[in-house]
Design a binder for these strands. Structure first.
Length: 459
RNA sequence: GCGCCGGUGCCCGAGCGGACCAAGGGAACGGCCUGCAAAGCCGUAAAGCCGCGGGUUCAAAUCCCGCCCGGCGCUCCA
């Protein structure tokens, strides 16, 4: 027992998180297919599992976090063809962009970041076992899993086979070679000019779903604890992954976690709709945006659709600055205390234990921040402890604080203006001081006069 | 159509049977502080009742039923 509860998509209810091995949590989160700019939706997803991981660690659990990179699929092949270069070139380029963007969002590196192309041998092996189990068959176009042979195939989506078939027949082009329209490809036979790998069924490439089964089970082992991803993956991706594991009788994820989508103007951000914003674009727009976006993600429960727009980003930036302001205050006054405020930590933990209640966790953090400021104002002895607590809670959520002290060469000009303004103030030449402050404001710099002297920060 | 998740203040967003019937953030207003600011603090802003209509209960934003509206999935997708 961890005391932590999480919603489980499979059972449809909030259940206690019970790791297969006490004190350890094996987490597999589905990562992106790398062929284009990562968008804000990818960021929300990565942030969700980063926060989950950080919180589990904050509670003393030993987490093994795996997040894959899909570096071979139709989209990559098409992109490579369009640009006249290799699939590998495309994947390597966009994987680097993705990894860099995540780092800028303060997303911790997963312990393992397996690439699909490096696991093809294991995938072929896995497909072979499914064949051995009699749950798959070959056609001219590849190897297919016989969905009807898997008991409880649609359990994750809470739908029956007939129900699923009704939709499939209407929506998906029916492949005459398949026994059942729901059957899906485990292995795709090679087409001309496409990358391929050898297999007992001829050269080809792996189907999408097989990679995650091979990698999650391969790295984390049977019966690993949490499998996460965007809720758009529930079907068919996760449903099919699960079917593959079930087909060979291997215990799969104990707990299924899915984050909701991110909306722009009320509708899902997606490639096909062309209404997406890239992470890099958002990050480049304002130095505070990385943390502001994380805060926005935290302030909406992970299972609820969240909206992003410029106004919300601006308000989140303001909120982030309150954290920095506290850090500046404490660094200019008392040193941070060591002991955390127990009441606040308890409130925080109980909020987070309840299906990762980050909105309330954030509320506790800000509430503590407020109490810290008030204590600082009246010089109360609990001030250092409260300050340390607020900053620690922020840290548990992955929100770093920036005390905003200058230092780079670009700042020397600012430093000089600040010094000149201070000199004017000491001479009580208010007009000159105010003019200098305006100059600084034009540079996007805000000066604050404190008992310990002026400090400044970028707006 | 079927499945899942929702509809709470000016905006975002918690709360999911009773502790102050509504946390926290943003925006707004008044005061303190300041040379003036900024930051911070103190306080305020009629949520006519938490989408609508019924019901259950001593008690509902919170449970049940129906309806309306929104998002996502059923197609590559985080």
């Amino acid at each position: 027992m961890t005391g932590i509860e999480l919603y489980d998509t499979l059972t449809g209810e909030i259940r206690p998180l019970e790791p297969r091995e006490p004190g350890k949590v094996a987490l597999y989160a589905c990562g992106p297919t790398v062929y284009d700019h990562p968008h804000l939706g990818h960021a929300r997803s990565a942030l969700t599992y980063d926060v989950l991981r950080r919180y589990l660690e904050w509670r003393g659990l030993d987490v093994r976090h795996v997040a894959n990179i899909t570096d071979i699929d139709d989209n990559i092949i098409n992109r490579a063809r369009d640009e006249g270069r290799t699939e590998s070139d495309v994947a390597v380029e966009w994987e680097a962009v993705y990894v860099d963007a995540m780092a800028r969002l303060d997303v911790l590196d997963p312990h393992d970041r397996p690439r699909a192309t490096e696991w093809v041998t294991e995938m072929v092996d896995f497909v072979g076992r499914i064949m051995d189990a009699g749950a798959a068959y070959t056609t001219g176009t590849g190897v297919y899993l016989r969905v009807g042979s898997v008991h409880g195939y649609g359990d994750l989506v809470h739908r029956g086979l007939d129900d699923l078939r009704a939709s499939a027949g209407a929506r998906v082009e029916v492949d005459e070679d398949k026994e059942d329209p729901l059957d899906f490809a485990l292995w795709k036979a090679a087409k001309p000019d496409e990358p391929s790998w050898p297999s007992p069924w001829g050269p080809g490439r792996p189907g999408w779903h097989i990679e995650c089964v091979a990698m999650s089970l391969g790295i984390l082992g049977d019966d690993f604890d949490i499998h996460g991803g965007g809720n758009d993956l529930v079907f068919p991706h996760h449903t099919n992954e699960r079917a593959e594991a079930l087909a060979v009788g291997r215990p799969f994820a104990r707990h299924w976690v899915h984050n909701a989508m991110l909306n722009i103007e009320g509708t899902k951000m997606s490639k096909s709709l062309g209404n997406y914003r890239t992470v890099v674009e958002m990050l480049d727009e304002h130095p505070l945006n990385g943390r502001a976006f994380r805060l926005l993600v935290l302030q909406t429960h992970y299972r609820k659709a969240m909206e992003v727009n410029p106004e919300l980003m601006a308000s989140a930036r303001s909120a982030v600055q309150r954290l920095d302001a506290l850090a500046r205050r404490s660094s200019t006054s008392a040193a941070a205390g060591d002991d955390l405020d127990e009441t606040a930590v308890k409130a925080f933990n109980s909020a987070m234990d309840d299906d990762l209640g980050t909105p309330q966790g954030v509320a506790v953090m800000f509430d503590t921040l407020h109490r810290a400021n008030a204590a600082l104002d009246r010089g109360a002895e609990e001030a250092p402890s409260l300050t340390a607590t607020a900053i620690s809670l922020a840290g548990a959520l992955g929100l770093s604080v920036d005390e905003g002290d200058g230092g780079t060469d670009a700042d020397s000009a600012v430093e000089e203006l600040v010094a000149r303004r201070q000199a004017a103030r000491e001479a009580k030449d208010w007009a000159a001081a105010d003019a200098l402050r305006d100059e600084l404001a034009a540079l996007g710099v805000v000066v604050e006069d404190t008992p310990a002297g002026p400090i400044w920060r970028r707006q």
